[in-house]
Write a protein that binds this DNA or RNA. Sequence first.
DNA 1: TTCCTTGCAAATCGTTTGCATAATG
DNA 2: CATTATGCAAACGATTTGCAAGGAA
Lengths: 131, 131
Amino acid sequence: MTHKRSRQRELIKAFLMTRRDHPTADVVYSRVRQEMPNISLGTVYRNLTLLSELGEIQRLRLGDGTDHFDADTSPHNHFICNHCKAVIDLEMESIDSIDKVAAAGFQGEIEGHVTYFYGSCPACAEHSQIS
Amino acid sequence: MTHKRSRQRELIKAFLMTRRDHPTADVVYSRVRQEMPNISLGTVYRNLTLLSELGEIQRLRLGDGTDHFDADTSPHNHFICNHCKAVIDLEMESIDSIDKVAAAGFQGEIEGHVTYFYGSCPACAEHSQIS
DNA sequence: TTCCTTGCAAATCGTTTGCATAATG
DNA sequence: CATTATGCAAACGATTTGCAAGGAA
């Protein structure tokens, strides 16, 4: 389980840390490729998987078919725009208490939850204004 | 967008209504195939997609790589066992109020959310007892 | 007859993996 | 030197789709 550093892994993480929009592996690939043209998609996937296993980044399975990655590993919730599909960080009060609500009357053990909010992002909500 | 009835679609929905365990397309396929050996996987997928678009069934994207289907379209939450991967319906109080929590301070519009709870199901929790 | 639906197979898409080579400690 | 990481391409699993033939209205 020991690992050696590699320039590609460092580039991938560095790039991810500059982004707030939770890019997909493909986006990471095409961008990192600008600095290192020979990097392969497989390497990008391997490192994204490794980094998320190490807890250095977060893998988001939004259910839209492609995984998204987030270098912000602090606990926070996400919002997905129904129109433009943008993934946005939400700054909100903790809702971890829903675990207790779920646990009430349940025979097993609730250890956690995953929640995604949907709707119109600021930009798309603005455009659909009929004011 | 008008549609005609078909024996295969009816079989698929009927089967789904007998299940509480949120089967995958593959499970639906192998089971329905017992009654109609010539049915194809493509037809199963087409109908599952159509039925969920019509709102007659629910498609669950649990993020485990395969979609699950649920004939129970009433609002309810799901639990996924970290050990045996079973998908279980939760009977719990509504947590829809988390939408308001998310909306506070958010410039866009929150229209809804999707939540999945994780942990140990009753059976797996039992087995790991060290009592 | 019209046109929706099927079965079949090929095609997609995102992601993973085997292998020989290159880079790291 | 012992190993881990890489590039490349092939392999994968789930789902979709094109097409000619079958079935419902």
